[in-house]
Design a protein around this nucleic acid. Structure first.
Lengths: 154, 154
DNA sequence: TATTGTTATACTCTATAACTATA
DNA sequence: TATAGTTATAGAGTATAACAATA
């Protein structure tokens, strides 16, 4: 423990956070964490973390997609995807099939159970996003999505 | 390794990511990561991670602020702040002084070196954010900040 | 030689419980 | 009894290197 030097100084009654609240990175991170926090709660019944939801959802909507394609689309590193894919397969939500033209790769497909679960999960995701964005008008929400895309798709 | 069942299936030529790109949480996270990635590169000369920058910047602009106030403002848990504060103190950028009215707390203050470094770092932060947001007009950028705040300050 | 999927592993980040000193 | 700061530690998330099988 470092000892404080004994000098009398005024204390802060109201914190001024403008130095960070003017930064795009700070606000984007805080907003993302706020949404993810609610996501974790509402998706607990489906045992899907945000990344699991993204992966499973992509497989449902892109039958036959490969791990490599999932990684590059979602920004996941291959070693970190392996466990997620195996867990989803173990739960019977997806299965691996031989890729038609590339013997190294597997085509990933959602099972009937996987499709059914994801239908529920996607409805829940839309509902929770409606809640989180309840302070925004429909127009503002659309604008927010468009501007966020312009940042990371630059 | 789980063996793929040998069934011929079509492969995906163009991945459809609309199922996640319509979600606020997904886009906010991708945008935040994109900004943080550039931040890490440009702030390396100052040896400041995003959280270090936020903490040090808050101390510069709020002389006498306590650890507790930093935690609640920035959303950091107290045990995780201890190491950052000690590291900044060891570098001579900040110092702890006795709190005028609460014997348990320390008032945190930036040193002359800390103020000088943060001036440079803040200029670099503004510059990199200008770059990251180069696809946005000044008006769009202002709107983006406002809408992000409405999400996490709900 | 390059790429897909995988293993092992290290590093960072985040979270919880419990302790001390003071209010 | 409650709070500020701290310690120790567990867990989750993210990263790199290296390998076998296939292109």
């Amino acid at each position: 423990m470092t000892k404080a030097v004994p000098a009398a100084e005024p204390c802060i009654d109201e914190v001024d956070a403008s130095c960070v609240e003017t930064l795009l990175g700070y606000n984007a991170r805080r907003a993302a964490l706020a949404v993810i926090d609610v996501f974790l709660q509402r998706m607990a019944p489906y045992k899907l973390r945000p990344v699991d939801f993204s992966v499973a959802s992509m497989i449902v909507h892109n039958p036959g997609i490969t791990s490599r394609q999932l990684c590059s689309t979602l920004g996941i590193l291959p070693p970190n995807l392996v466990g997620m894919i195996n867990a989803l397969e173990k739960r019977g939500l997806i299965d691996k099939r031989a890729h038609p033209s590339d013997g190294r790769a597997n085509g990933l497909h959602a099972s009937a159970e996987g499709i059914a679960l994801l239908q529920q999960a996607q409805a829940a995701a839309l509902a929770l996003e409606d809640e989180v964005a309840s302070n925004l008008t429909a127009s503002e929400r659309k604008t927010l999505l468009r501007l966020l895309k312009k940042v990371y798709q630059a």
